[in-house]
Design a protein around this nucleic acid. Structure first.
Length: 357
DNA sequence: AACACGGGGTT
DNA sequence: AACCCAGTGTT
């Protein structure tokens, strides 16, 4: 007993709520199917959890459907071409996830016979699987009583216990509370229940305490500070960087693209050749000699830690053009959707601004 | 422990 | 336009 209710009371209140309100998601095995003895496919659980890192359910849904249609199993994914996987991931962000996804699939295929480890510790050893994801897969796919703590859980627990310590300092404290609340029965459903509650009821702003199954035990609510929790350390301002992107269109319609280095921003993704992105205006650095036009186009895009103002220069180039950087991709196989968002924006603003000849 | 790493949503 | 959200890997 602690704070007026037993550790099991939270799960006891949350599981019936989940049984009624569990969202129907492409990767989720609902409470009814689980009760009938079905088990989730660990591959689908893993894939969804990687995609859901730092990313909303709404953004993930279509990507998950395309990935599972193209690669229905971890062995199928392990055999995919790097470029094909990166192209399918384009637009979802945090591209290191896609590189680690492929690494992980290949380790599972080659070192584990295509079968995911079924323990938190085993999962934790795989590329791209950290503390949260290892616990989530162990709980959801293998029904192990792992303490699953993501941002939603941090918020729910901080409010439930009125934890006023700011993040990230509060993490160890919240983890301890999360561990104590994790039940031995139906831990997979419980983990999804807390995260669903955080996503749909105990929201960052304007939480719907009136319909919350935990309202009776919520100390944050009792103290009138629920909506202010969790407190967070102030974040620093983003600087603005500038750069130039060079879009070259060959006579036959082919476009000049380069694959970015694996390390760093947009690593491993296709992009337009260009300058570095720096706070001072960069010197011009065209990837080939051409009559570069400046139609005064600018793309604005915000990354995790800086704003970018990207100037877009255009050129039509002859069939025999020899680029110093990048390679020409035939128009027929070039899909703007296979570019990261900032690069797709550059293509979009260029439409209608191409020089006549 | 601090930093790098996207994109989308809301206000 | 400014603000919000938030796991993993690297250093």
């Amino acid at each position: 007993m602690r704070d007026g209710f037993s550790d099991g009371a939270v799960a006891a209140a949350l599981l019936p709520w989940y049984d009624r309100h569990a969202r129907d998601l492409p990767w989720r095995m609902g409470p009814a199917a689980l009760a009938a003895g079905e088990r989730p496919d660990p591959y689908r659980v893993w894939l969804s959890e990687i995609m859901l890192q730092q990313t909303t359910v709404a953004a993930v849904k279509d990507y998950f459907q395309r990935f599972t249609a193209l690669w229905p199993s971890v062995t199928a994914l392990a055999a995919a071409e790097d470029a094909a996987v990166m192209a399918e991931w384009a637009g979802l962000g945090y591209y290191a996830r896609a590189r680690n996804l492929l690494k992980c699939a290949r380790v599972v295929a080659s070192d584990h016979g295509g079968v995911f480890p079924d323990t938190e510790d085993g999962l934790r050893q795989l590329p791209g699987i950290g503390p949260y994801t290892a616990a989530a897969i162990a709980a959801i796919a293998f029904d192990r009583p792992a303490a699953v703590m993501d941002g939603n859980v941090e918020r729910v627990v901080a409010r439930l216990f009125a934890v006023e310590t700011p993040l990230p300092t509060a993490k160890p404290e919240l983890r301890l509370l999360t561990e104590r609340l994790t039940p031995d029965t139906r831990p997979g459903c419980y983990a999804q229940a807390v995260m669903d509650l955080g996503a749909t009821v105990c929201t960052p702003r304007s939480p719907a305490c009136g319909i919350c199954p935990l309202v009776a035990m919520c100390r944050g609510r009792a103290q009138g500070i629920a909506a202010e929790l969790p407190r967070k350390a102030p974040k620093q301002a983003k600087p603005t960087r500038q750069g130039i992107a060079y879009l070259a269109l060959r006579t036959d319609g082919a476009v000049l693209l380069e694959t970015r280095p694996d390390k760093g921003l947009l690593g491993g993704m296709l992009g337009w050749p260009g300058t570095d992105w720096t706070e001072a205006p960069p010197p011009e650095a065209p990837p080939l000699a051409a009559d570069w036009h400046d139609p005064d186009l600018e793309v604005r895009h915000t990354f995790t830690h800086f704003h970018l103002r990207l100037r877009v220069l255009l050129a039509r180039v002859p069939q025999d053009a020899q680029p110093e950087r990048g390679s020409f991709h035939p128009r027929a196989s070039f899909r703007p959707a296979s570019l990261p968002t900032v690069m797709r924006k550059a293509w979009d603003v260029a439409a209608g601004a191409w020089p006549k000849d």
